[in-house]
Amino acid sequence: MDMTVIYALLVLGVLGGVFGLILAFASKAFAVEKDPREEAIAEVLPGANCGGCGYPGCAGYAAAVAAGKAATNCCAAGGDAVTAKISEIMGVKAEAGVKMIAQVQCTGGCRGHEKYEYAGIADCSAASRLPGGGPAGCSFGCLGFGTCEKVCPFDAIHVVDGVAKVDEDKCKACKKCIDACPRHIILLAPYKTKRHVAITCSSKDKGVVVRQVCDNGCIGCSLCAKACPKEAITVEKNLAVIDYDKCVGCGICAQKCPRKLITVDGKVPEVKPAAPKAAPAAAGAAKAE
């Protein structure tokens, strides 16, 4: 046989063998001792690396939990199921967290009241740096360029009809949109799966101003606060705010609101006997009360 063929086989075989051996030894010699619990935790985490727990990625959180530096219920994305699994691995009792969601405090009622036409970079932080805080008529309102949509790792927030809307089922409360929003109009709210009442407005302007720039922004009339049987609503700086610790979800405030701003389960309840004009938020079938 030709010697070249033998040499070729020999060289490749020997090189392969030598490298194989080196790698085998290296894997022993350079083995890094890892806490087996860390790998187990990383296994049960969703792996979305959303950073909602405050650690860099799921691996970072797994390491922190295994080292005893973090609680077992910090993973908002995984929810109670993951908390239970992590607690089981760590051998501690699971403490269930309340499901939180991001809530956009704007209905987009200022669309159509724009101060000027904007043709710049399609990004909220760029637009918000312009004179008057951007093109939106209301200086507290959603700009609608979808900076929150771009940062959401769960596809849970979308700009619909010019205003950001959160998909409550998909939202994992990772707070990325809250940090990204230059208007600071997204907040974290405890979410009751049934009868979640929301006052989605951030405007601290006086009622007169709000009426000029928004179809259904809060004018601070205090009717809801007076109507609330649990005193869960307070009006401060012309803006009604719900204290979710007190709110029982009765929806009486939503009936009283003259601006059709307060929603129950994302819908404006129909006011008896006549509902004159449905607000944009009540695009779907209004929930009968």
């Binding site: 490749l12 090189l15 490298f19 194989g20 790698l23 290296a26 894997s27 010699a29 350079f30 890094v32």
Partner: peptide
């Protein structure tokens, strides 16, 4: 062959 094994080796070495 060399590059593949080299990268593997470097990865293990760096980790340690």
């Amino acid at each position: 062959l060399v590059i593949a094994s080299l990268v593997q080796f470097v990865e293990m070495f760096l980790q340690k």
